[in-house]
Computed example of a mutant assay.
Amino acid sequence: MNFDELTRFLEKRVQLPLPGNSAHELMKPRLPNGAPIKMNHASNPRKGGVLILLYRDGENTYFPLIQRPHYEGIHSGQMALPGGRFEEWDGNQYETALRETREEIGVQEGKVEIIGSLSEFFVAASNYMVLPVIGKIDHKPGFIPEPREVADIVTPAVQDLINPTNLKEKEIIVQSGFKMQCPYFELQGRTVWGATAMMLSELVEILKEFGDS
């Protein structure tokens, strides 16, 4: 997928109404019987930001995903976009996404040109309201994983993300033994599901328009 054409399209498209929840629902995990998963939280959600970092390699477009290390937590071992929680010194969630990307995979903020953002997304499992920021960089960065937060980095092509043969579904059992029926993207042999898949689903729906433009 041509980097220049794609990024020009996205710069204009993110200024228009976004598909939002209708796209998120396409990748939403459910109980094995098909019922929705409900979670209640006593506190208001914290803010966070993640970065969909599009970069050029040749004439094609790629983006990094990270694999979280295994730890005692709800996102243990999962695939994710680089990002994290909003801190008081961040001016906004865009800065959060850029800072966390530098901390996690070593891409400096000044190297990234912001395209815009997708719809804010509520991550029910961790009680975060996350802004998926889209940025671009004109070459493949030299990624440096932060070992405490990143076990591995994979770099799928955007074309793989929108390839319908990579959209699949299976039962996933999380650490607590809780079972879910999950749509997922299979990217470079990795299972990308949950909140990350739901956010990426909005990008996929938008990119269907790019194919028609």
Rank of each mutant, 00 (worst) to 15 (best):
P183N: 05
N163R: 10
H41Y: 02
L18N: 04
V50W: 03
I144A: 10
L161A: 03
Y62A: 06
R68V: 08
K179I: 13
I105T: 01
V192S: 07
E87S: 08
P29D: 11
R102Y: 12
K28G: 00
D160P: 05
T191G: 04
G116V: 03
V204A: 11
G20H: 01
L167T: 11
R99A: 13
P156H: 10
R30T: 15
C182V: 12
I144S: 12
N163Q: 06
N33T: 10
P82Q: 08
R190V: 00
Y128H: 07
V133Y: 07
N163C: 02
R85G: 14
F185V: 04
E87C: 06
V204D: 00
G48N: 09
S117K: 01
E209Y: 00
N127I: 05
H139W: 03
F86R: 13
R46E: 12
P45V: 10
K179S: 12
I52K: 06
G73A: 01
V123Q: 06
I172E: 14
T61S: 09
P183S: 08
T191A: 00
S117P: 07
L65D: 06
P36S: 10
D160Q: 08
A97I: 15
M199F: 13
L200R: 02
G49Q: 11
I144K: 14
P36W: 14
N163H: 05
G177A: 03
L98V: 01
L131D: 00
S119L: 09
E186Y: 05
S117D: 08
C182N: 13
G58I: 02
P17D: 12
I115P: 07
E113W: 08
Y128C: 01
H139L: 02
R46H: 09
R102P: 03
H75E: 13
L31R: 15
A97S: 11
Y184R: 08
W193F: 15
R56W: 01
I52E: 12
E88H: 14
M1D: 02
K47H: 07
M129F: 10
I74T: 13
K208D: 00
T196C: 07
E72N: 15
